[in-house]
Amino acid sequence: MTDQKLARDIYQAAHLTGEFTLRSGVTATEYFDKYLFESDPRLLKRIADALAPQVPTDGVDALAGLETGGIPLAVVLAQVTGIPAYFIRKEAKSYGTCRLAEGGDIDGKRLFIVEDVITSGGAVLDALHELRNRGARIDSGVCVIDREAGGLKNLSDNGVDIRALFTMSQLKEAGE
């Protein structure tokens, strides 16, 4: 059962129409600007509250918020769940600590992916491979919006079960 009011509020806050090129290279006529719902503290808290039941209560060492959109979600979700949040860069810094993940050591840690919108799953797959190469264990995660373009299946095929709070269809249905 989905929260229709939350779906409607996300749709109203973040749904844009026009011509948009997605990270995957696909051109879309609809776009969810995640920063519009992530910058609203009340809406962001409601989203974290709705995501929290999807986070395993045992065995997760840290939430892995993917740069950039997954980071604010991971921070608020950490507040709700009490699980630490790590910040995962698109690539390791070439200066300072030279880390891919900020917030703690990831070697041997079980991380739970936190992402905003998934289309093809490419950004999550890139992070997944880098994190696993550095010793992290990852088998699950959440996202706010599944664009229903095969991303969740691509991730499942790579051993990660991502649960979406809403599909794009659910948001459109709630917003219309």
Rank of each mutant, 00 (worst) to 15 (best):
S39C: 08
C143H: 05
P56K: 00
A92G: 06
D157A: 14
K90H: 04
I118R: 10
G65A: 06
P72A: 08
T57S: 14
L155H: 06
A92D: 00
G59M: 02
A50I: 05
M168A: 14
R132D: 13
L171M: 05
G25D: 03
V142W: 08
G104N: 05
R137T: 12
A123L: 03
T2S: 13
V117T: 07
E102H: 02
L131C: 03
L16P: 08
V117R: 01
I145G: 10
Y95P: 06
F32H: 04
A48T: 01
T21C: 11
N158A: 15
G150H: 05
L44G: 00
F32T: 02
V117N: 01
S39H: 07
D161V: 06
A174M: 03
S156M: 13
G96M: 06
N158P: 00
G103Q: 04
I10C: 04
L100A: 06
T21R: 13
E38W: 01
G151R: 12
C98E: 15
I88K: 00
G175S: 07
G150T: 11
G175F: 09
K90D: 03
C143K: 12
A52L: 10
R110E: 15
Q79I: 03
I106L: 12
G121L: 12
N133Y: 14
F37V: 01
G141P: 13
P53G: 07
G108S: 10
F32D: 02
T29I: 02
V124H: 01
V142C: 12
G121E: 07
E102I: 03
V144C: 09
R8T: 05
A136L: 13
K5C: 02
L36A: 10
G104W: 06
A174E: 00
H15R: 10
E30T: 14
